[in-house]
């Protein structure tokens, strides 16, 4: 399969699922009618539903899917490990800690975007700690260890907050937030996350050639003239910005960054730079599909996206492991 054909098919798939996401919802309206309402300017209730609820939800699904797919491909390429994922360096768990702190302290109620803002702040602090822990010249191994340590620390602090929560409602809210969801998001969330994510996407897009060179190892990449410490800084900055913003608006959504690059890698002939674009589109498609699924399977019950993603992702991972075992 040619690379162009792959990209075109993935783009078509994303467009199709985007439309499917727009026409899926609790309101008993046909697909044609709702799409007409989206375009028409009559100010009716259906137009409101389409523009204020479903459109931002679908756009966020694309943005978050792109962020997770792209970051997953970049992390796997950089660490040369097919089991790496964006959460590995602790960005999502530190973002989650920031959000939990905001929910617990009541800061989340201070203004509309206080919760995602706190999560973003958590992600920034997390990445700063990772860079400090792993040092300027540390290799892939140090980075993984630093990420594991940070994830463990933030997870423990999050549990501690839940453990000591004086208010059962706050604890409940925290647990639901951590499951990850795209329900009840607005264009405010889109506008808040978009510039940060876009910065992350641009940074990650620039790592393609360096990741390609890393296929043969760090020495080979260095001998090809690539500055590896600069590559690492750009890559970590990109992952932190895009995944931090994604976690901030939607909570923790796992498996996308792990499964999507893994599934698409054989289709790009193992090329780390081509995988970036393919994975970004694949991530968007998977997230849109999962977000349609949560609304179709249990309509009106607010099934959480992160739960469905884990239910879908875990069997796929098991299948991958099964196949890898067969090869070795």
């Amino acid at each position: 399969m040619s690379f162009r054909f792959l990209i075109l098919s993935l783009t078509a798939l994303v467009a199709l699922l985007f439309a499917a996401s727009l026409v899926t919802g609790v309101a008993p309206v046909g697909p044609g009618e709702s799409l007409v309402a989206l375009i028409s300017d009559d100010g009716g209730p259906l137009t409101m539903v389409m523009r204020e609820i479903r459109l931002p939800r679908a756009i966020l699904a694309v943005m978050i899917g792109v962020s997770l797919g792209l970051s997953g491909a970049a992390m796997q390429g950089f660490l040369r490990n097919p089991l790496a994922e964006p959460g590995l360096i602790g960005v999502s768990s530190s973002a989650a800690l920031g959000a939990v702190l905001a929910l617990q302290s009541g800061f989340a109620m201070a203004f509309t975007l206080a919760l995602p803002f706190a999560a973003l702040l958590g992600a920034v602090i997390g990445v700063a700690m990772i860079l400090f822990l792993a040092g300027p010249g540390g290799g892939a191994f140090t980075l993984i260890l630093a990420g594991i340590a940070l994830s463990a620390l933030t997870a423990a602090l999050t549990s501690l907050l839940l453990n000591l929560s004086p208010n059962p409602f706050a604890a409940n809210e925290i647990v639901f937030w951590m499951m990850g969801s795209l329900a009840d998001r607005s264009f405010d969330h889109v506008w808040m996350a978009l510039p940060i994510m876009a910065f992350g996407w641009l940074a990650l897009a620039r790592t393609g050639r360096g990741l390609e060179a890393l296929t043969l190892g760090e020495d080979a990449a260095a001998s090809m003239g690539f500055d590896l410490s600069r590559l690492r800084l750009v890559l970590l900055g990109g992952v932190a910005a895009s995944v931090g913003a994604a976690t901030a608006v939607a909570g923790a959504i796992g498996f996308v960054g792990l499964v999507v690059p893994h599934v698409l890698r054989p289709l790009v002939g193992g090329s780390s730079s081509r995988l970036l674009l393919a994975s970004a589109l694949g991530g968007a498609a998977l997230l849109l599909a999962a977000d349609v699924a949560v609304r179709l399977v249990l309509p009106g019950r607010d099934l959480k996206l992160g739960v469905v993603m884990a239910l879908v992702g875990a069997p796929i991972s098991l299948h991958l492991i099964w196949r890898m075992r067969g090869q070795s």
Binding site: G217, M224, G225, D227
Partner: peptide, 22 residues
């Protein structure tokens, strides 16, 4: 580094590549 890269190539004896590459 960028000039050196045009004059010397280095294919290290590395552990196998992490995933199948054409």
């Amino acid at each position: 580094p960028s000039v050196r890269a045009t004059q010397a190539a280095w294919l290290p004896q590395s552990p196998e590549i992490a995933w199948p590459v054409t």
